[in-house]
Computed example of a mutant assay.
Amino acid sequence: MCPLCSDDEDIEVTRTFDDGRRLVKHRCGYAWEHADPAPTSGTAPRSFAYLKARFPKAEDVTPERLELVNRLKEQYLAVRPAPAPEVVAYWSKYQRVFSPGGLRDCDPRLLKDFANSEVGAHPGNQATFNSAWNTMGDAAAGASTRETIGYLLYGPDGVPLEDRLQELLDGTKPFAMTGFKEALLTRVLCVMRPERFLTILKYTTQADGKREIARKVYGLELPAPESVNWTLGRLVFWSNDLLYSLAGDGFAGQQHAAAFLWWAKDRIGGPQQGGGTTGGAHPRR
């Protein structure tokens, strides 16, 4: 399987070494050494643990690129903004709303307001969600949204959080609220797990999601979301954890760290480095 795009088709052996290692090349152009039996098409889907172990890691960033980013970080942190009080208050409110008891008893309009708010993290246009809500009415739409958020946050322990997210993205759960997808689900996680989740709400977008920021800032090529061997739910989590780890300490909070990554990607130019060859919206307030 190609380490870059996670596709196992059209991989050819270009050289065989005396010790049995092979130099193999994928149709995307990426080449690597392979010691196991040569990959073939039709390989069964890889396991959760297998894929997670092969997801790019912080140590894959070249020392040169890491030194450059750390210099930018020192420059960025020279001015340390105070946490915006309206963000602190708003997110504290929704931490109560999204608690098990809060979800059960909250006014449905609070859920619709959250989907359309820009405080702390801008989820983009939610026309699909709003249209579905208006068609269903407050009671039915509120119930569906409650179940969606509840399953994401408090679903069965036997289903990894990454895979619960994917089930909601796929709409395989009958209660999944129409339009309450990646940006909004990630925003819920940012509110409830601010110690872990950056306010970068999409994995990949033209306006730069986690995948684009990893490439531009750290020179890492993350897997394509359309690959059959990965799921978007897993990529959302693993890319977030990677970027949070790489950003490191010293920030006032998750919005501050995310803002640094967007700032840094606009200041790093030149050819891509590290990680092989070659969603979201900016937080507000």
Rank of each mutant, 00 (worst) to 15 (best):
K173C: 14
M192R: 10
L189A: 10
R193E: 15
L184Y: 01
A176C: 06
F175E: 08
E195N: 15
P194C: 03
T178M: 07
P194M: 09
G171N: 08
A176T: 09
L198P: 04
E195Q: 15
F175L: 01
K202G: 15
L189T: 09
T205E: 05
R196C: 10
L198K: 03
F197S: 05
L168W: 10
A183N: 05
I200Y: 03
L189F: 12
T172Y: 01
R187C: 08
Q166N: 08
F175H: 06
P194E: 03
G171L: 07
I200G: 00
T204Y: 05
E182D: 11
R196W: 14
M177Q: 15
T199D: 12
D170F: 02
L201P: 07
D170H: 02
L201F: 11
G179C: 03
C190A: 15
M177R: 14
L169F: 15
T199E: 15
K202M: 04
L168N: 13
K202Y: 12
L198Y: 01
L168F: 00
K173S: 12
F197G: 00
V191R: 10
T172F: 01
K181G: 12
T178C: 05
T172P: 13
K202R: 14
T186S: 15
M177E: 06
F197M: 14
E195M: 11
L169C: 02
E167C: 11
L184Q: 08
L185T: 10
I200M: 01
L198G: 05
E182L: 04
E167P: 07
A183Y: 01
I200W: 00
L169R: 04
L169T: 02
P194R: 08
R187T: 04
P174V: 00
T204Q: 06
E182T: 02
L198C: 07
E182M: 09
R187F: 11
T204E: 10
C190K: 00
C190W: 10
P194Y: 07
E195F: 06
K181V: 05
E182K: 03
L198D: 15
L168I: 12
Y203Q: 11
I200V: 04
L198F: 02
C190F: 10
Q166W: 15
T205L: 02
K173T: 12
K181D: 05
F180Y: 13
M177W: 00
V188G: 03
A183V: 02
L201V: 12
R193H: 13
